[in-house]
Structure formats: C-alpha cells, structure tokens
C-alpha cells in the first residue's frame, strides 16, 4: 500500500480531468456567448450601450491637458507579465492613447517592468504612429524598460516623473505595492491621473490619489467602451449575462444552503 503508484483519476464524461469539467464548461459557455453576441453586433443588430465610466470618458481631456501645457503623457502598464489579464486589457487603452498622442503630436513616454511586455508595447505604439500617418514621430527611446525588479522599476519611474514632470499620468494594468509610490508622486507633481487595476488591495490607493479610478472589471470593459466597436460591446453584453447567471446561481446556492441541502450542488461544481 505504502509503495503503490498513485491511482489514475477517473475521467469525468469520459474525457475531462476531475475537477476541471465545470471550469471548462464555464469558459465554453462564456466563449459561446461572446461569439453569439459579437456576431449579432457584427450583422448590424442593435447593441446596448455601456453605462458611463467617468475614468474612460476623461482620457481625451487628460491628453488634451498635456497637449496644451506642452508636456508629456506618462503611461505605466504596471508590473505584470503577458500572463496577466490586466496587462492584456491595458493594451487597447494604450493603443488608443498612443493614437491620440500621435494625432496631436503630444509626447508619450511608456514605461515597463517586464521585457516581454516592453516588446509588445513597443509594437503597439509604433503601429499607432504608423496608423495615424506619422511614423517619423515614433521614438523608440520613449518606450522604456526599467529593469525586472518591482522596486527598480518604481524608483526609475519616480525619478523620471520628478525630472520630466509629465502633466498626465495613466496607470492601467497589474499593480502591486508600488501603486502608492507612483500615484502619490504624480499627485504631488499635480498630474492629472487616471488609473485602473484589478488588484483589490491596491484600488483604495488609486481611489485616494487619482482623479479617476477604474474599479475592478471596468478595466476589462475599457476596450469596448473606448472603441465603441459594436462587436466588442457585444462581448460586454455576454459578460453581463454570465454575471447574471452567476448571481442567480449564488442565490440558489444560498437558498439550498439555508435548508442544508447544497452538498449536491457543490459536488456538481467540483467535477
């Protein structure tokens, strides 16, 4: 018994690894909803609009402020890597900001901690300048990698902001303990600051120091909100439907739990 090899787990529905089935179906269902609603939007059917998100409404105003003052826009994508959803969600915002800055000849300095993310952001910004018809304005030295260390990155950004004094500071992405350092530095310098992260422990610091903060999932709706692309808005409708389903499931689960009859439901989700 002591030296017996671990038993092979029994597959669920013949193919799934135990414990992964419910999760796979959740992703499949969400994927299907996204596909259906994006197709509906793509064929011209009416799509509801996304409710107002003040932080995203103010991006143009923030860039305009920098343009008028003749100062730079600083964009920090945080410390996450390409496996972080926050970083991926920040890319469409960066693309929009880069296009707008290129259009109005406003200097954009974009800083990174992860070198793979640096490579992606460099591509996004370069393509944004090309798309607006100003490839000669793209400056690769304005897309910066400041070391792989969280604090090396933060210190370098702190130093840059204190020297160059950008008028606008965007912080969209995955942030950790360095949040307050970056945001407070911008606040002391009088920057207009708009930030968004899904790290719940850091949102309070953004709320305390920034003009506008995207709370949690608002960061993930940003690309659809900014672009107003009906196809992307259709995907946000799919997200809402999934959340409604989850809210309904938690209510049903709570009712069953009140009558001490929720074990079967928990077992179903554990498959």
């Amino acid at each position: 018994m002591l030296f017996a090899a671990p038993a092979t787990p029994m597959p669920v529905l013949g193919i799934f690894y135990p414990g992964e089935t419910a999760g796979f179906f959740l992703i499949f269902m969400l994927g299907l909803l996204i596909y259906v609603f994006s197709r509906r939007a793509g064929t011209g059917k009416r799509v509801p609009s996304i409710r107002k998100i003040p932080g995203l409404e103010s991006i143009d105003e923030a860039i305009g402020r920098a343009t008028e003052m003749g100062k730079a826009v600083h964009y920090s994508i945080g410390i996450g890597g390409v496996t972080h959803a926050d970083t991926i969600a920040s890319w469409p915002i960066l693309e929009y900001v880069a296009r707008t800055c290129a259009k109005y000849d406003t200097k954009l300095v974009q800083t990174n901690r992860n070198y793979l993310v640096y490579g992606v952001c460099d591509e996004i910004i370069k393509q944004a300048y090309v798309a607006v018809g100003k490839p000669e304005s793209y400056n690769p030295n304005d897309v910066r990698w400041y070391s792989d260390s969280q604090w090396g990155y933060s210190t370098a950004v702190l130093g840059y902001m204190n020297r160059d004094k950008p008028s606008t500071n965007f912080m969209f992405g995955s942030f950790a303990a360095e949040t307050l350092l970056l945001a407070e530095a911008g606040a002391v310098l009088g920057c207009m600051q708009i930030a968004g992260t899904t790290n719940i422990l850091q949102i309070p610091f953004f709320v305390a120091t920034c003009d506008y903060t995207l709370l949690g999932e608002e960061l993930y709706a940003a690309s659809a909100y900014i672009s107003k692309d009906p196809v992307l808005v259709g995907t946000v409708v799919a997200q809402d439907i999934m959340k409604m389903l989850i809210a309904a499931v938690t209510l049903v689960g709570g009712i069953f739990a009140t009558f001490k009859a929720d074990k079967w439901l928990k077992n179903l989700f554990a498959k």
Partner: peptide
C-alpha cells in the same frame, strides 16, 4: 463580489484575444 466580476472580466478579455476580436498587440494596420 469584486473578485467574481474581475474573474469573469479576465476570462472575457482572454477569450476576445483567443477569438481575435482583440488585436491591439499586433496593431491594426
């Protein structure tokens, strides 16, 4: 509540990239 919404949002963002609805990382030219 925040975590539930954040997770759904992160899955949606990832699915948008998988389905090539989101293409910021390769540019739109």
């Amino acid at each position: 509540g925040l975590q539930i919404c954040i997770r759904v949002g992160s899955f949606a963002v990832a699915l948008r990239v998988l389905l090539a609805l989101e293409r910021a990382h390769v540019g739109r030219g």
